[in-house]
Amino acid sequence: MTTWTSEELTRIGDAEELGVSSLRADGTVRPYVTIWVVRADRDLYIRSAYGPDNPWFRRARGSGAGRIRAGGLERDVTFEQPDDTVHAALDAAYHAKYDRHGPAIVGTVVGSEAATTTLRLVPRRT
């Protein structure tokens, strides 16, 4: 396993949006979907705003690997289930970064239901 560099954490974590793509069975990359990304400590996280049936989320969880692009960077990643202890920090990170968009929108990525659709982004060497 590899880790994020400080520069990657800053550039990706500070980006307003992230493009996420999962891998198909043949190893090719699907089209990118634009979502929000937050940072907690030395990790990056994404959540499905529309629950576990959102197609991009199902595909990412199913394949376990893909690519992201944000902050002028593009990286291969694995999608991992995070530790349950991180969800309060992620809710706070989403509020701090995105509350200016209003409670209706931010409400889709915070709370106990959103916690079930959280993926930790882990850099992957290809």
Results as ranks from 00 to 15, higher is better:
Thr3Glu: 13
Asp99Pro: 00
Glu80Ala: 15
Pro52Cys: 01
Leu121Gln: 00
Asp41Ile: 01
Val122Pro: 00
Val29Asn: 04
Arg124Leu: 15
Thr85Ala: 15
Ala96Arg: 13
Trp36Gly: 07
Trp56Asn: 06
Pro31Tyr: 05
Pro103Arg: 12
Ala114Ile: 09
Phe57His: 15
Gly72Glu: 10
Tyr32Phe: 15
Gly19Met: 05
Val37Ala: 06
Glu74Ser: 15
Gly13Glu: 08
Glu7Arg: 13
Leu44Cys: 05
Arg42Gly: 05
Arg24Ile: 00
Gly64Asn: 05
Asp14Met: 05
Asp83Ile: 03
Thr28His: 10
Pro31Glu: 13
Ala60Val: 03
Thr28Pro: 02
Ala104Arg: 14
Leu44Gly: 06
Pro103Cys: 00
Thr28Ile: 02
Glu8Tyr: 08
Tyr45Asn: 09
Met1Ile: 07
Tyr50Met: 04
Ile68Ala: 03
Gly27Phe: 07
Thr116Cys: 02
Ser48Thr: 08
Arg39Gly: 05
Gly102Trp: 06
Leu90Gly: 02
Asp99Arg: 13
Ala65Arg: 15
Tyr98Ile: 06
Ser48Gln: 09
Ala88Asn: 08
Gly64Leu: 07
Thr108Ile: 03
Val29Arg: 15
Pro103Glu: 12
Arg61Asn: 03
Ile35Trp: 04
Asp26His: 08
Pro55Arg: 12
Arg24Tyr: 11
Leu90Arg: 02
Phe57Asn: 06
Tyr32Pro: 08
Arg30Gln: 12
Gly27Tyr: 07
Ala114Ser: 13
Ile68Glu: 01
Asp14His: 11
Gly62Ile: 03
Asn54Val: 03
Ser6Ile: 08
Ala89Met: 03
Leu90Lys: 01
Thr116His: 11
Tyr94Gly: 01
